[in-house]
């Protein structure tokens, strides 16, 4: 169990590509942090640098009170769960879990006891003598977890561990991993490109894009107060609606003139207005015309996709709210509107 501290960590590959721009953050003891971003955003590289599988080009990484830049992965007191499980196919589940301990020259009785503990915790007891090929995806993932648990590491690293599972199993394993992490209280860093996983599992989310950290915050903050248009459009399904708007006469106007909220002091010119689909109401008395092209029925709620002026727009409607087709009118909840600089995409 340990605090993790990154100080201007940077990664430049030999071919000159800067995969991670100087990044600093701090993970307190026991926190579950999710690194999320589209593929190629540098999140896996960052994780692999923390694991010691990639060299750190610049910066300092400490786990606990120890700077571990040059330390071998095996000596960093970490455990890692890989996307494709990375189980040793020729070893039984028992040996897979025990292998890391054997290499540390721990005596056999202790190993056996730890393996049993982990197996009980993960419901793997009856599979201990099977080979990975005889297990289902979820079970394999649990073996990979077991391999991590028995080492009592200071830090868990997860590299997209659920992306090879089907949707149902993924939801289940998500809860299991989260519960396990809570129970063990081990600091964890979890990499995923799935924003649902990020939202549901994280104590704090780090959103990355193009090798840069876009925002660090609790799931609530990241969702409701995105720091940039990138975060706004990446988090949430469907993403936040982003509309081109203008500051005019002290108001924020969309759709060529309709005022939606008062502008912050002394602003003029273009702005990007962001609003979550659930912060929009179908409202016959509303002053924004909207054309619904498509309704997605999702049981508990519906998604209405269509055109607001010449821009695409989505609305989230609960099952007992009206779901009109074709032309209708809307109103926005002004308190929940986020404004972004149209040039930089940063929050105003």
């Amino acid at each position: 169990m340990a605090r993790v501290h990154l100080e201007t960590i940077r990664k430049i590959y030999p071919n000159g590509f800067e995969a991670v721009t100087p990044t600093s953050f701090d993970i307190p003891d026991g926190e579950f942090v999710v690194l999320v971003g589209p593929s190629g955003c540098g999140k896996s590289t960052l994780l692999r640098m923390i694991a010691g599988l990639e060299d750190i080009t610049e910066g300092t990484l400490s786990i606990g009170d120890r700077v571990v830049n040059g330390v071998d992965p095996a000596d960093r007191d970490i455990a890692m769960v890989f996307q494709n499980y990375a189980l040793y196919p020729h070893m039984t589940v028992r040996r897979n879990i025990a292998y890391g301990l054997q290499n540390r020259k721990i005596d056999k009785a202790t190993i056996e006891q730890k393996v049993q503990e982990a197996a009980t915790m993960l419901n793997l007891t009856e599979y201990l003598d099977r080979k990975p090929a005889q297990l289902s995806g979820g079970q394999r993932q649990r073996v990979a977890m077991g391999r991590a648990i028995v080492r009592d590491p200071a830090l868990f690293l997860f590299d997209e561990p659920l992306s090879n599972l089907d949707a149902k199993l993924r939801n289940q394993m998500r809860i299991e991993i989260k519960a396990l992490q809570r129970r063990l209280g081990v600091t964890s860093i979890y990499v995923t490109h799935d924003q649902v996983e990020a939202m549901t599992m994280a104590d704090r989310i780090i959103v990355m894009n193009g090798g840069k950290v876009e925002q660090i915050g609790t799931p609530h903050e990241v969702y409701h107060n995105p720091a940039s248009t990138f975060v706004a459009s990446f988090m949430g399904a469907p993403p936040m609606n982003l509309l081109e708007a203008r500051f005019e006469d002290g108001m924020v106007r969309i759709n060529g003139g309709t005022p939606v909220m008062p502008a912050p002091a002394a602003r003029t010119g273009n702005v990007t207005l962001g609003i979550r689909p659930e912060d929009v109401r179908i409202d016959d008395a509303g002053d924004i015309p909207f054309h619904v092209d498509l309704v997605e029925e999702l049981g508990a709620h519906r998604l209405l996709h269509g055109q607001l002026g010449d821009q695409t727009f989505s609305i989230h409607a609960m099952k007992d709210e009206p779901a009109p087709q074709g032309a209708t009118r809307l109103s926005l909840i002004p308190d929940n509107i986020c404004l972004f600089d149209s040039e930089t995409g940063k929050r105003i």
Binding site: L53, A74, I78, A86, Y99, R104, R147
Partner: peptide, 21 residues
């Protein structure tokens, strides 16, 4: 798969151990 090598590295298997085990 490369992950196997990495998993072994994290498990503390050196080059000789990885080869043999």
């Amino acid at each position: 798969p490369n992950e196997l090598v990495e998993a072994a590295r994290i498990d503390g298997a050196g080059p000789v151990k990885f080869f043999i085990d």
